[in-house]
Design a binder for these strands. Structure first.
Lengths: 352, 352
DNA sequence: CTGAAAGCGCTTACAG
DNA sequence: CTGAAAGCGCTTACAG
């Protein structure tokens, strides 16, 4: 006769650990009158059996599902789009999104053990992180408690332990650069994000691949790593425009950076696109609102948020998911910030 | 000897209702083998004693406090600012904000009884609504369960049952209009929000008060009620600019509406501020980013969000609060969209 | 439909 | 530090 593993109760745990029920109770409730060794044995039994107190069990089954979200300031277009995607899907599915009290900046300082514990106790289904770095050690706390974690645009490369949702950054970087090359540009600068950011690295490699396939040599002085900020757009533009041979086009790895490029260009009286072309990345409303409207590689940010939430819910429900890492397609949206370069000796026009 | 009212247990409730413990248990757990009359008696006893099951009690005391939030789309500057204020305070106090799965639009359709019940069960401290209307009937469900409710910029007038946080809309409306009058404008249109919106009504009355104190007759055809949208800015501007005697200035009751005014003005070749002055309301980043930069009455939106959250927490902790209705100060921020009118016979310049 | 009795799972108070 | 015993609060199974 096959016995289905029935839910473990305190007595089961006690039996396995070879102690009495009261002792297990003490361990669970964090009392300190338990010998370290005994405590360890009990804790092992608790984990092995996956014991859940009645409170925990009930929390897990009652009310609408809740998913924790850690997101950096909602006052940037990128986060906003992702958040909107998450919230729309959440509303349609009756899921509640809990904006964690853990600030993204302090993600690594947080007590992950306690955090995971609390999540289980309050019946959270999973955790979504937006553009964060996740270390294996941190992840372990969540894995051990079977809390699914999904990261939108992780800063570190895909990792077997969590779901990651990204965009085809390499293809996007290539498309942006191809577009500029086809317009006739040969001196194209790249203003990237942080060197550690996986997505920025992929965009850079897309840029390099496009240059290479057109037989254009990459120039190190045209390639800057910085941050996805407007300020870096200003500073980076100063730097490349002050070169003896200034670029005729800039590919900025984020729309925010591109706005900074526009600021500095305006400041110098450099007209975009007449004197210099510019492509951004992200395709947030900023691109549409900019003056001139920004040619940009659109990321499906809402869809990425939605996909992350859906994956978390699927995993929480014990359903399988197709792949731990998904990349949604980017799309080059051509607007008014790109045009053929002004002809000079170093950049002869080519046919598109 | 004074007995402190100790927490009621199931037996207490049973005694008060004159039934046995099992019967109370059945009512609590929603079983249907209880006579309607008995059920009613038990329910009354439950409410009277404020009975909480152990699960509920624990939920209420464990983990970081949670506050529910119902807010309309985060993709408008107004909501974003309010939300940012709420989140900043929440992060600093270790409070978790739960973005409710109840969509703002469906607020009134929701099952408030069930909602309030769930909030208690999951230990939510209170509820914040942003720019919503609250009916007495709905409020009762929350009051009965001692769930504090705070509304930021309620659409209906202050009500004794909930905390409301607003801004000095009347003073703001007057300041905006005074500014235009002092520049010499006499033909000033008002593009308001929905007629039902308390804040818009207050802004209108501020506008009227300013006109009156300068001896300027209000013209009904200059006063339009609409919505806080960009579209209404376009439509409203068309309407007033097509009047036989067009206004020389527009006071838009929201920045978003003001952007619509700019759209339509640009479309018609009307230069702002040279040909027409414009004042907005809200003081969101939109005002700063607009072309030209928008003179606007700034609301302390972040502070309003923060104040709402603080009040909810204070009430939840049983601390008193100074006042159920608070109005934070607005401030006229003069930028580039206002200037003296072009002189003509009907609007002689006056000294500021 | 109701409730006395038994039971469940956890916790507490305290003897050793 | 540990656990037998008593207790707590709720729930279940079932007799009436």
């Amino acid at each position: 006769m096959v016995h289905k593993k029935s839910k473990p109760v305190l007595a089961t745990v006690a039996a396995l650990a070879g102690v009495s029920a009261p002792t297990v109770s003490k361990v669970i409730n964090g009392r300190d009158d338990v010998a370290a060794q005994t405590r360890a044995r009990v804790q092992e039994a608790l984990e092995q059996l996956g014991y859940e107190s009645p409170v925990q069990r009930r929390a897990r089954f009652s009310g609408p599902p809740m998913v924790d979200l850690v997101i950096d300031g909602i006052n940037n277009s990128y986060s906003q789009e992702v958040l909107t995607g998450i919230l729309e899907y959440a509303a349609s599915e009756g899921i509640e999104i809990v904006l964690s009290s853990v600030a993204p900046k302090r993600l690594h300082d947080a007590n992950h053990e306690e955090w995971a514990q609390r999540m289980v106790e309050s019946g959270r289904k999973g955790l979504i992180l937006v553009t964060s770095e996740v270390t294996t050690r941190e992840l372990d706390f969540f894995k051990r408690r079977d809390i699914p974690v999904a990261v939108v645009d992780p800063l570190n490369p895909p990792h077997s332990g969590f779901v990651s949702v990204g965009a085809t950054n390499w293809a996007g970087g290539r498309a942006a650069t191809e577009h500029l090359l086809k317009l006739g540009h040969r001196r194209i600068a790249f203003l990237g994000g942080p060197e550690a950011a996986e997505c920025s690295v992929a965009r850079l490699h897309g840029y390099l691949a496009a240059l290479m396939s057109h037989g254009v040599e990459a120039r190190p002085e045209y390639i800057l790593a910085g941050a996805f900020t407007r300020d870096f757009g200003i500073v980076g533009t100063q730097q490349v425009l002050d070169l003896p041979e200034a670029p005729t086009a800039i590919f900025a790895a984020s729309d925010l950076t591109a706005l900074g490029v526009l600021d500095e260009a305006r400041h110098r009286g450099v007209k975009v696109p007449r004197d210099m072309s510019l492509v951004g990345f992200d395709g947030t409303p900023l691109a549409e609102q900019a003056q001139p409207r920004l040619t940009s590689v659109a990321q499906p940010l809402k869809e990425m948020g939605r996909a992350a939430l859906r994956s978390v819910i699927q995993l929480a429900n014990g359903e399988g998911i197709d792949s731990l890492h998904v990349e949604l397609a980017t799309e080059l949206v051509i607007r008014d910030s790109t045009s053929p370069p002004i002809l000079d000796s170093t950049s002869p026009p080519i046919r598109g």
